[in-house]
Amino acid sequence: MMVKGKVWKLGNHVNTDDIIAARYLNTTDSQELATHCLETLRPELVQKMEPGDILVAGENFGCGSSREHAPIAIKAAGFSLVIAVSFARIFLRNAINIGLPVVETSEAKRIREGDLLEVDFEAGMIKNLTQNSQYFWSGYPPFLQELIKCGGLMKWVRKKYIKSE
């Protein structure tokens, strides 16, 4: 899989309240959640972004609450990928479970707002077309690769548990 998009850069410890505030958690509608994505932190972002754009963050992205509404909002807003130096664990599993691509690499520090990136998941390569550089990441462990390949946890469960019954 390949994605290409423009970067929106965020800092360290972006929490799930920043991504989607609790006042919007009285709905499960992904499109509605998307309209409030990152509203507290960057109110203009959702209006200005283009589908396929990439979020790049520092350390511990998605810390705080377990609300899956956070990766749902990011995915429904049209972001193709989140790259961060590190992810908080519940956010990471939620993203993988719902099929939102995430890449964990310390190279995220070098990426700047507005950079144009081309990401090749199979090769584990990020091409920074703006800075004319490239970064590699080690990829996911085999178990997570299997989950991702299935298209998320529920598809994996259906394949493994429900179809076999």
Partner: peptide
């Protein structure tokens, strides 16, 4: 441990959870 909603959906069906 805290997990997401999809984890709970899967666990309600299978009685299992993936963990590192």
């Amino acid at each position: 441990t805290g997990v997401g909603s999809t984890d709970v959906a899967a666990a309600m069906i299978t009685g299992r959870i993936w963990l590192r």
